[in-house]
Amino acid sequence: MVADSPPPYAAQSGADEPGDPRSWDRDKPRPRISGVRPYLLTHGRVRPFNAAVLNVAAQVMTTWEGRTAYGRLSYEHRDIVALCVHPVSVAEIAAHLHLHLGVARVLVADMVALGYLVVRGLEVPVNQKSVVIERVIRGLTAIR
């Protein structure tokens, strides 16, 4: 649906056109938060379809479908597909692309629904929680 009808916000993002995803510089500072109103970026949607999955730390990764569709995507979707070739959190997407956190969540949720991204939340099975905590303890101890 995205490819068929250019979204209304595309023109407003022209100055922020993404480069080749392979040369994406995720640490490059950008000047400021986008002034584009959230409702423009999200086609009027203000809630992600599944807020529980989209924890601020949830890991987002581009799928093969997302890479394949890159050339047909809107600018905002391209930015996210390029950034998430290496998995990053929802909060990092917002920070790197200078989106409000809520906008990033809605865009990610939409793109998950379209099959361009996969998301891994913070759910840890109860019986594995201690194992996870112990691994984090070992990891921090190793860099102490």
Partner: peptide
Amino acid sequence: MDSPRFADAPGVGWPPMPVKI
């Protein structure tokens, strides 16, 4: 979407496990 299993290392294309403090 397949559900992740902690015991199995994530295959190619599956994001890492995030934890938060």
